Amino acid sequence: MSFFRRILGLETRSGSLGELEALLREAHETAAGIAVSSDAGLEYAPVLGAVRAISESVGMLPCHLYRRDGDDRRRADDHPLEKLLSRLPCPWTTAYQFKTDMTAALILDGQAFAHVARASDGRVLEVVPLPRKSVTVETDPQTLEPRYRLSLSDGTHRDLDRTEVFHLRGLGVVPNTGLSLIRAGRHAIGLGIALERHASRIMARGARPSGLLKAPGRLNAQTIERLKSSLQALHSGSESGSTAVLEEGMDFAPLTFNSVDMQFQEMRTFQVAEVSRILRVPLSLLSEMSRVTHANAESLGRQFLSLTLLPYLRLWVETIYRDLLTEDEREDYYAEHTTGALEMADLGSRIDAYVKAIAGGLMEPDEARARENLPARGGEAAKLRFPMNTETGGATDA
């Protein structure tokens, strides 16, 4: 029995229908006639791009554990949970992989699960991500608490206690159960997939002809075959691009895009905007740049942080508070993400922000150096500074 099965105490039963039930729940056709499951949605490029933009951004932002010390706070480097949050949740998964994969599952399924292994005193030893769709959540009719049932693909089952589960749950209309954004928006996504498939079929059949040959009268079969052979020879191999000689009084009429073709293109663009609405990702991050200007590009970046990422980051820290801290620890400890990596993406913006923060007395020089992985200077150069027009006697020694 593997270590994973040992710590979970999994038992084997025949006839597991967990994956089949999940498939049947998701495999409902949309109005476009296409079944859109959470996994099938990833085959649509705008959905894949949006899921990557959110999950990878959340994964790259460092998450640390802090301890309140009166009116001050400091990072809890001595707490075992700090290492799990910032480095290795379990021996085979990095913090970036853990947060990225869990956030992607949250977007696709509405929730994500991990098993929490604890010591006898309640301390968390490791957090092991569980396979998607392997956990079923029910609500206790008496206490309204969630009850968890783990079912793996080989038929093993186990009931998990609430203290053993890290349950990352997003928007939901059913108690203790998250709502899949892909399933909720499946009709719009299904239409986008239908348009993609239609365009692919057109291209597979050689796209559209460049023009038509018009004949004043009826052509016999021999003339038609001779014309086909002649045109194919003129548009293939080394003779491609040669001059065509028409016969039987024929005329060549080139084909151009009509209003229907243009509307098809607009529909494909509109479906990208629909994905943007569903997952609340700026169109610029989905490479739809038709409405992006130099004036609003920076604003769209701020909106991605404030309106898209911050709700996910808040969900992460509150779930850590609920599922990974003991009741005694909740009084003094809390988790928080460092969003500076997104707020100051380029060197010029970072340096300008550091200079203003140091000059305004908000940050010590050594704090700024630490954020850039530079060694501390110490001494007078590292002391907190205040603007000359606001400091009082002795303020520079604060």
Rank of each mutant, 00 (worst) to 15 (best):
T93Y: 02
R322T: 10
L125S: 09
G393D: 15
G378L: 07
D346M: 01
P209D: 11
F252C: 05
H64Y: 09
S236G: 05
N220W: 00
G41N: 03
I182E: 15
V116R: 01
D366M: 00
V116G: 05
K383M: 10
L8I: 10
T223C: 00
G394L: 10
G217T: 04
T269Y: 03
I358R: 01
R350K: 04
E391R: 10
P141R: 09
M203T: 11
L285Y: 09
S14L: 13
R201T: 14
Q232W: 06
S276F: 01
P146L: 04
G301M: 06
R322K: 09
E126D: 08
R74W: 02
D39F: 00
R13M: 08
R277W: 00
R123L: 09
M267P: 01
S287H: 11
D72G: 03
A22R: 03
R169N: 13
R268D: 12
E266V: 06
S86F: 04
T338Q: 12
F3H: 12
R371H: 03
T94D: 09
G378S: 05
R268F: 02
A184V: 13
V173I: 14
S210C: 11
S200I: 14
L108Q: 11
V275P: 05
E364R: 06
L8M: 14
R330M: 06
G301Q: 11
R52A: 01
G348K: 12
Q265L: 13
T100I: 01
L347E: 15
R314Q: 15
T100M: 06
W316S: 02
A35M: 05
T93P: 00
D161G: 13
R158D: 10
G33R: 01
S306D: 15
G190I: 09
G301H: 07
D71E: 15
Y334W: 10
A353I: 03
V47S: 00
L212M: 11
L307E: 15
E248R: 00
D101R: 02
T163Y: 12
S306P: 00
V317W: 01
R118G: 09
E343C: 01
W92P: 07
S306V: 12
L171D: 15
L324Y: 03
E247V: 04
L181Y: 12
I278K: 07
Y312Q: 14
P209L: 08
S240F: 03
Q303I: 08
N296C: 04
E372D: 10
S349L: 02
